[in-house]
Simulated assay, not measured.
Amino acid sequence: MYLEILTPDQKVFSGDITSVQVPGTSGRFEVLTNHAAIISTLEKGDVTIRLAKEEKVFKIDGGVVEVLHDKVIVLAEAIL
Protein backbone atom coordinates (compact mmCIF):
# COMPACT_ATOMS: atom_id res chain seq x y z
CA MET A 1 0.00 0.00 0.00
CA TYR A 2 1.25 3.51 -0.81
CA LEU A 3 0.92 6.54 1.49
CA GLU A 4 1.39 10.28 0.99
CA ILE A 5 1.12 12.83 3.81
CA LEU A 6 0.81 16.37 2.48
CA THR A 7 0.42 19.81 4.07
CA PRO A 8 -0.36 23.01 2.14
CA ASP A 9 3.36 23.78 1.86
CA GLN A 10 5.21 20.43 1.79
CA LYS A 11 5.20 16.68 1.18
CA VAL A 12 5.90 15.19 4.62
CA PHE A 13 6.02 11.49 3.73
CA SER A 14 5.61 9.26 0.70
CA GLY A 15 6.30 5.57 0.34
CA ASP A 16 5.14 1.99 0.70
CA ILE A 17 3.70 1.03 4.10
CA THR A 18 2.15 -1.95 5.86
CA SER A 19 -0.62 0.02 7.62
CA VAL A 20 -1.55 3.48 8.87
CA GLN A 21 -3.65 4.63 11.84
CA VAL A 22 -5.32 8.04 11.67
CA PRO A 23 -7.34 10.16 14.14
CA GLY A 24 -10.76 10.20 12.44
CA THR A 25 -13.43 12.66 13.57
CA SER A 26 -15.56 9.75 14.85
CA GLY A 27 -12.58 7.90 16.33
CA ARG A 28 -9.19 6.49 15.50
CA PHE A 29 -9.09 3.88 12.70
CA GLU A 30 -6.55 1.78 10.83
CA VAL A 31 -6.14 1.28 7.08
CA LEU A 32 -4.67 -2.01 5.83
CA THR A 33 -3.97 -3.34 2.33
CA ASN A 34 -7.12 -3.75 0.19
CA HIS A 35 -9.14 -1.42 2.45
CA ALA A 36 -12.46 -0.25 1.06
CA ALA A 37 -12.55 3.21 -0.50
CA ILE A 38 -13.18 5.92 2.10
CA ILE A 39 -12.92 9.65 2.66
CA SER A 40 -12.90 10.94 6.24
CA THR A 41 -12.16 14.14 8.13
CA LEU A 42 -9.36 13.99 10.68
CA GLU A 43 -8.96 15.50 14.14
CA LYS A 44 -5.78 16.76 15.76
CA GLY A 45 -3.70 13.71 16.76
CA ASP A 46 -1.16 11.09 15.73
CA VAL A 47 -0.79 9.46 12.32
CA THR A 48 1.03 6.17 13.01
CA ILE A 49 2.73 4.54 10.02
CA ARG A 50 3.93 0.94 10.08
CA LEU A 51 6.70 0.14 7.65
CA ALA A 52 8.33 -3.26 7.12
CA LYS A 53 10.75 -2.91 10.07
CA GLU A 54 9.87 0.35 11.83
CA GLU A 55 7.09 2.65 12.93
CA LYS A 56 6.85 6.42 12.39
CA VAL A 57 4.50 8.89 14.08
CA PHE A 58 3.50 12.32 12.81
CA LYS A 59 1.33 14.72 14.85
CA ILE A 60 -1.21 16.52 12.67
CA ASP A 61 -3.55 19.43 13.30
CA GLY A 62 -6.59 17.94 11.56
CA GLY A 63 -7.27 17.36 7.88
CA VAL A 64 -8.74 14.81 5.48
CA VAL A 65 -7.82 11.25 4.47
CA GLU A 66 -8.69 9.47 1.22
CA VAL A 67 -8.22 5.73 0.59
CA LEU A 68 -8.63 4.43 -2.97
CA HIS A 69 -7.06 1.45 -4.78
CA ASP A 70 -4.37 0.76 -2.12
CA LYS A 71 -3.29 4.41 -2.06
CA VAL A 72 -3.78 6.56 1.05
CA ILE A 73 -3.53 10.35 0.91
CA VAL A 74 -3.53 12.34 4.13
CA LEU A 75 -4.06 16.07 3.59
CA ALA A 76 -3.05 17.59 6.90
CA GLU A 77 -3.70 21.17 8.01
CA ALA A 78 -0.20 21.21 9.58
CA ILE A 79 2.42 18.97 11.14
CA LEU A 80 2.93 19.77 14.82
Rank of each mutant, 00 (worst) to 15 (best):
V74R: 11
V47G: 08
G24D: 04
D46Q: 14
V31N: 02
Y2P: 00
E30M: 09
D70T: 01
G62S: 00
I73W: 09
L3N: 08
D46P: 06
D9A: 06
S40I: 04
K56A: 07
R28A: 08
E4T: 15
T7F: 01
K71T: 13
A78H: 11
D70H: 09
K53A: 10
V64T: 08
F29E: 00
H69I: 01
K59Q: 15
T25E: 15
E43D: 13
L42T: 09
V74G: 02
S14Q: 15
Q21N: 06
A36R: 08
R50P: 09
L75N: 11
I73S: 13
T41D: 02
M1W: 01
G15Y: 11
I39F: 04
K11E: 10
S40R: 05
E4W: 03
F29C: 02
K53L: 08
G45V: 04
T41G: 12
F58I: 06
H69G: 12
I5K: 03
L68C: 04
F29D: 00
V12E: 12
P8R: 00
D16R: 14
K44A: 08
A36Q: 03
V57I: 15
S40E: 07
S19E: 04
T7E: 00
E55R: 13
K53C: 07
S14P: 14
L68E: 02
G27C: 03
K56H: 04
V64L: 09
I49C: 07
E4C: 07
M1R: 01
T25W: 07
D9L: 11
V12C: 12
A37L: 04
K11I: 13
H35K: 04
E43K: 15
K11R: 14
H35R: 07
N34A: 05
V12G: 13
M1S: 08
L6E: 05
E30T: 15
V65K: 02
N34R: 00
E77C: 06
G62T: 01
S19K: 09
L32M: 14
V20P: 03
I38K: 05
V64K: 08
L51T: 04
T48I: 15
G27S: 06
E66W: 07
P8M: 00
E77Y: 02
V64N: 03
V22C: 01
K44G: 03
H69M: 04
D46H: 09
Y2S: 09
D9K: 12
I73D: 13
I5T: 02
T33N: 02
E54N: 14
K53S: 14
Q10H: 12
F58H: 12
I17L: 14
L75M: 14
E54I: 09
S26L: 15
D46A: 14
L75E: 01
G45Y: 06
V67F: 06
E66H: 05
